[in-house]
Design a protein around this nucleic acid. Structure first.
Length: 287
DNA sequence: CGTAACTCCTGATGGC
DNA sequence: TGCCATCAGGAGTTAC
């Protein structure tokens, strides 16, 4: 399930391979995913040049040299795959859209579960899905990281003041903070030793600050490892990420907590359900 | 308004 | 071995 690190890796892959290329043709194999794929897509993309790729939360934005930007969301199982034209083109199963460039590359959007989104908007206007999105968890400039961490903590401290929900569920809400999904929320809460069952409003400023630090640490480590590959997620070249090797709690119900072992404690990772989603945690470490 | 349940979908998994 | 129920979850929509 692609979250911020996975989407960031895909965006970088697209940027490195396709920036500057001109779109020659568009093959549409399906008219809808989660929403309808806009009818105007072929017209908007035809003969346009790709000038940049940007990530916002879990969205990828492909900016064109005309007035349009294409918005991609990978949903649960979406992939964006880039291949040179010399590998013979074959439509894969669940391939819904294919772009072909004059520079002889394919871009394929593949998504078995079809929770993904492909949409189009005018670059100078903001897409409606981006308007109410919360701030990015990472600073745009790594040197500003500490300052940004403080800013985010101030912001979240205010946001959490009247939030009665579990901290776990609040962190998953893209309108509060963008880019986090179940895996990285579980891992960040574990790292900051905060129970997923705490109510957001019960967190002190110091705890929120520590939580933001943990979120940033986890996300940066995950990006460095090329993201987490479970089933579907791969880079644009088809290679897998390996951050799943570094998970401490996610998917580890019944295994011993490694932090506890270091302190000569023995405790097993628990799994609970919150808002219909699994939460993995150590009830000895996380309070 | 805030909050929670519901919904979409396919593939992996486990029980019998 | 095959069949069926269950689960995974992002995020918009609906209901309260």
């Amino acid at each position: 399930m692609p979250e911020l690190p996975e989407v960031e890796i895909v965006k970088r892959g697209l940027k490195n391979t396709l920036t500057g290329q001109k779109i020659q043709s568009i093959k549409r194999h399906r008219h809808n995913l989660r929403h309808n794929i806009p009818i105007a897509l072929e017209t908007a993309l035809g003969n346009s040049r790709i000038i940049n790729f940007v990530r916002r939360g879990k969205y990828i934005l492909m900016e064109l040299d005309n007035q349009f930007t294409v918005l991609f969301h990978l949903g649960m199982s979406g992939k964006l795959i880039v291949q040179p034209l010399n590998t013979r083109y074959e439509k894969q199963i669940h391939e819904h859209l294919t772009l072909i460039t004059y520079e002889e590359y394919y871009l394929k959007f593949i998504d078995p579960r079809r929770f993904g989104i492909i949409d189009l908007f005018l670059t100078k206007k903001k897409h409606k899905l981006l308007i109410n999105m919360g701030p990015e968890p990472l600073a745009s400039d790594e040197k500003q990281s500490e300052k940004y961490c403080k800013e985010l903590s101030d912001y979240l401290f205010k946001k959490f003041k009247n939030k009665k929900q579990f901290i776990k569920n609040v962190l998953l809400d893209q309108h509060i903070i963008a880019g986090l999904g179940n895996i990285y929320v579980c891992e960040a809460l574990f790292l900051s030793k905060i129970s997923p069952f705490r109510r957001a409003l019960s967190l002190s400023f110091e705890e929120i600050y520590s939580l933001i630090q943990s979120i940033q640490t986890i996300l940066l480590q995950a990006i460095k490892a090329g993201g987490s590959s479970m089933r579907d997620y791969v880079h644009v070249n088809g290679k897998r990420g390996y951050f799943q090797m570094q998970w401490n709690v996610y998917g580890k119900e019944g295994e011993y907590c490694t932090f506890c072992l270091k302190l000569n404690n023995i405790n097993k990772i628990k799994r609970g359900i919150q808002a219909g989603r699994s939460s993995f945690y150590c009830d000895l470490c996380q309070k």
